[in-house]
Design a binder for these strands. Structure first.
Lengths: 202, 202
DNA sequence: CGCGACGTTGATTTGCCTCAACGATTGTGG
DNA sequence: CCACAATCGTTGAGGCAAATCAACGTCGCG
């Protein structure tokens, strides 16, 4: 029986890189050889805390989340990754240290993965990949900075508004529990916020 | 009259890069030619909101902060930069967009700066600078992720503990107003936290 | 069918903010 | 060098945003 994952095109990943910098044929071949498709079924783990993050993940289809579980057992979501976005624990990945984070699948999800060793090959043999990944990480850094500012300076309601504005495609795809955990509020309070909003709207 | 800044050695910056990757003589010359020293006196601005962030800043001596001012006039500090660390608004710098952030000097501060155009020259003519800056930005991203998690998942007291642990050299160098603004609490509340702590310690 | 996750609502608690006042320190101009 | 203002750190009283705990109906799923 043939898996979906094995028939998945790598083209979206090439497109993603080329949005940043055009690739030579040699570079494209490297990507095709070094990245491998894999399917994660809903609720399966891409990374569990305690393990070293060994793969860099680019999502082709589906949805992953990265989160931390605190002492009280509460989940705090750092990031969602849907189509055409990447996700991994960079600190664990590069430092070869056990991760304190988890990554799991909220839907059946197809990713293209590259191992740390192969990524180094990609950096070494490829022309532009240091630059491409520099730009990707810079963009992540900017986004994360904005989110930190939001969290420090805004109320839960404002953060929810911003979420609706920035991730409209996620609103109906995620449960409110997931959204609440991303915003840093309890599901109960998010429910109240939505209630206030729908009353205020009319 | 000769400025302190003009006699400042660029060696710490070279050391900083070489902590990451050894440089060829050609690369060192590039750094020496493209970075320029500048002194900012206490309370002077390196970047004001509305301006495009035109310089990448590496601090040799002194202390800078980067912050946002919200609608109510409250200051939220994203980052401090002391000796041997860099600071800039990457989003504004690369996107050539007006910044919403401010960077100013908490002490008389000497920086080495490089303009956006010259940084591109550095990337193009230098051997390893894409890689070096990729690693630097990756490290920043990891640190910022940890801080976001802290902010989402911890109480103000825990955040203060973490601050004491991670930045012991800053505790006696910054006023409590600055630290409070970094932690995301009011100065009054930080004062109470310190009070509780000193009582609990005995 | 029955179980567990979800979303909602109510009552209560709490972490942190706001506003206000005070002495101590810093710094600034006359 | 002193006087005055400005900023800082602290403390008190009161208020609000959001958490906690608990209960309940709904839905999807094994």
């Amino acid at each position: 029986m043939k898996h979906d994952a094995y028939t998945t095109s790598i083209q979206p990943l090439l497109d993603y890189f080329e949005d940043c910098i055009p690739l030579h044929e040699h570079d494209k071949q490297l990507v095709k050889n070094l990245f491998h498709a894999r399917l994660y079924r809903k609720r399966h783990y891409v990374l569990q805390e305690g393990d070293v993050c060994a793969q860099f993940n680019f999502v082709i289809r589906g949805c992953l989340r990265m989160y931390k579980v605190d002492e009280k057992g509460n989940i705090h979501i750092l990031q969602f990754a849907t189509e055409n976005s990447w996700i991994n624990d960079l600190g664990s990945f590069h430092g070869l240290k056990p991760s304190t984070l988890n990554i799991d699948a909220l839907e059946d999800t197809v990713v293209f993965q590259i191992s740390r060793d192969d990524l180094i090959v990609l950096y070494t043999e490829g022309e532009m990949f240091d630059r491409i990944f520099r730009v990707l990480v810079e963009n992540s850094l900017v986004g994360l900075q904005e989110r930190l500012l939001q969290n420090i300076s805004s109320t839960a309601e404002e953060r929810y508004e911003t979420f609706l504005y920035r991730y409209p495609h996620l609103v109906n795809r995620l449960s409110q529990v997931q959204i609440a955990s991303f915003l840093g509020v309890t599901p109960e309070f998010l429910s109240r916020l939505r209630n206030f909003r729908s009353k205020a709207k009319s």
